[in-house]
Simulated scan of single mutants.
Amino acid sequence: MDKLKALQAFVLIVERGSLTEAAEALDSSLSAMVRTLGALESQLGVRLLNRTTRRLSLTEDGRQYLERARHILAALDDADRSLGAQQAEPSGTLSVTAPVLFGQYHVAPSVTSFLQRYPRMRINLVLLDRVVNLVEEGLDVGVRIGPLEDSTVVARGVGRIRRVVVASPALLRRLGTPKHPRDLAKLPCLRFSATDGVHWVFREAGHAFTVGVQGQLECNLSAPMLEACAAGLGFGRFLSYQAAPWVAAKRLRIVLGDYEVEPWPVSLTYPSARLLPSRTKVFIEWMVGELKSSV
């Protein structure tokens, strides 16, 4: 027996004063309504209604049960309405994290448009060039670039990002354009410690190989590395979105494109151990659509 449906049937029988009318209202049969009422009374061990050929009347137990049944159904209806309203107009605060430049270029504009659409929402946007633990740091949603090794999060893919080698036009005129990644071993390179060390990985004929690189500068942030690269200090390797404005401005050029490794995935992540609030679901769906169109 479906207890919720039985409660609904009992309340409706009393309100309509007729098993037949209650059955019609619930798009059910009279026999099914009689069975539902009988099963409810059997489970409770009491008679709820006195039934004669002419009328139905509540017993004392029936009157007490009717009041509680109405309260339960009203509470469920309020809960449904509350969640429905929250889904239509989310409210509250979310903490969101993303890599610094990707956050500036892609996440922050999407967050702004989201907040304009949902004025009752607030977002704390944390931009960091390091891998964060969402649960330990109290974050609701993260944008992650690269392979995911954290099994405690759920990931929604939104795109892929290339890893590109770039150099300034002036440096290429002075030293020449490398024909193969191994040429970099003899050329000045800038090491971006957030994604690469002293060995850069490339791919040729389906197989990966590494090239040892060296140079005068190593840094954990992309902005100063891009500035140094554009100034002609050496070759650099970056995620494509990091270098995109510089390439578009013709301050950097991409080289060795035929030897790039597989693009890295871009994912929206959130803790798998939580039941997501409506506001988080709405935000995730918004960001999936925004990022898929921009990445």
Rank of each mutant, 00 (worst) to 15 (best):
V111K: 08
A6N: 09
P147L: 15
A231P: 04
M287C: 03
Q87I: 08
T59L: 02
Y259G: 02
A69K: 12
F114C: 04
S91H: 11
V126P: 04
N220K: 10
H199S: 08
A6Y: 03
D196K: 11
R156G: 02
M121K: 04
G176V: 08
V166D: 02
R70Q: 15
R237Q: 15
Y241T: 08
T269M: 01
A22V: 07
D80K: 14
T93G: 03
S31T: 14
L56I: 14
G38N: 11
V247E: 11
G103F: 09
A273P: 00
R253E: 14
E204F: 12
L94S: 00
L58E: 11
R35S: 12
F283N: 00
G103Y: 09
K250Y: 05
G45P: 06
V261G: 01
F10M: 06
Q216W: 14
P271L: 00
E204R: 15
P169E: 00
E60Q: 13
G157D: 05
L4V: 11
L101Q: 13
L187N: 03
M225E: 08
N133T: 14
M121D: 02
G197D: 11
T53Y: 13
P245I: 07
H199R: 14
L226I: 06
Y118Q: 07
V295K: 07
A98E: 02
R174F: 04
L30M: 06
G159F: 10
S272C: 01
V111W: 05
Q8V: 10
V158L: 08
N124Y: 05
F192Y: 15
G236L: 08
